[in-house]
């Protein structure tokens, strides 16, 4: 047997699942797609005493359009997100990002919410949740709460989730009509975790970039929103000089690690090249919207 012994609970409802987590006394784990948890259990890096399988809880496999947001339930698999027409129509940048996530077989099982909970610094889903001002829906025996993604994701493989809590859904804010977008990623083999990736959203009003949002991964121990760089571009014309300047600022602000896959210098260069391309593409895709006269 590869994993260490545990008690298995097939949760029938969210209430059942969080009761079982609470009963585990801090040592329970939710099993969603299993595409990150099972490898860790097979190697006994993780040894939960209670495993709470949420795969049979009804109605969690939905993508729904709420007011201004798309809600992805806890059993929405990567394949569903990649193929969903609401995602393709309302959040094309997410549709583009999903093409880079893992391989066909892994996409059949892995869940969006599971990836956000796993909080791998090189995963696309936490980064896209940050880009899209995501809100995390959380349930526990004590009730429900919501939390902005930027507070939820606190470090490499670390979130603000309590041991008796599970994530029931993630809400993603739908960008305004005409918002330009771009997603750029570099990995050594298709479907592998990326060395670096960047996603950009920007609106274009009266020839100027507005509401600029930039998220990156592969450059720190979590995915990041680059608020300083966003602010530096806000209100400026989308010229080559402006993009070069903010990319120089971005590169100066990064302190990536060297590891087996890439040196810090290489990662900084890569991040700059991807960001430069993404900023220009997002600007080109943005549709001009004139501000109403005051």
């Amino acid at each position: 047997m590869k994993p260490a012994r545990f008690d298995y609970v097939r949760a029938e409802s969210i209430a059942h699942a969080v009761e079982a987590l609470a009963g585990a006394g801090g040592d329970g784990k939710v099993l969603a797609g299993g595409q990150s948890l099972m490898p860790m259990m097979n190697f006994r890096l993780v040894k939960p005493s209670v495993l709470v399988d949420i795969n049979r809880i009804p109605d969690l496999d939905r993508i729904t359009l709420e007011a201004g947001t798309l809600r992805l339930g806890a059993l929405v698999r990567h394949r569903m997100t990649a193929e969903d027409v609401l995602v393709a129509r309302h959040i094309p940048v997410l549709h583009a990002a999903m093409k880079h996530v893992a391989h066909l077989t892994v996409r059949n099982r892995g869940t969006f919410c599971g990836s956000v909970c796993h909080a791998d610094p090189a995963a696309e889903m936490p980064m896209m949740t940050l880009l899209l001002d995501g809100t995390i829906h959380i349930a526990s025996p004590r009730g429900t709460r919501t939390m902005p993604a930027r507070d939820f994701l606190i470090g490499s493989l670390a979130t603000a989730l309590e041991p008796d809590e599970m994530v029931t859904a993630v809400d993603l804010a739908i960008p305004a009509d005409g918002t330009g977008w771009a997603f750029e990623e570099f990995s050594r083999r298709h479907g592998d975790y990326a060395l670096a990736a960047v996603a950009v959203l920007m609106e274009r009003r009266d020839g100027r970039a507005r509401n600029v949002r930039i998220a990156m991964m592969g450059i720190a121990d979590t995915a990041l929103r680059l608020s300083d760089v966003e602010a530096a571009l806000e209100g400026r014309e989308g010229t080559a000089e402006a993009f070069d300047e903010v990319v120089a600022r971005l590169k100066a602000s990064l302190a990536p690690n060297s590891d087996l896959n890439a040196s810090a210098d290489y990662r900084r260069h890569l991040a700059g090249a991807l960001a430069r391309r993404a900023l220009a593409d997002a600007w080109d895709r943005a549709r001009e919207a004139h501000m109403e006269p005051a």
């Binding site: 298995y8 097939r10 099993l31 299993g34 595409q35 097979n42 077989t105 059949n108 099982r109």
Partner: peptide, 26 residues
């Protein structure tokens, strides 16, 4: 046995899945 090689791929309810990342009980 960590989902990378694909040798253990089977079909689970008609879709491919890694059998090394699935519990029999599931």
């Amino acid at each position: 046995e960590h989902g990378v090689c694909g040798a253990c791929t089977i079909l689970l309810d008609g879709r491919s899945a890694r059998s090394c990342l699935t519990l029999a009980i599931q």
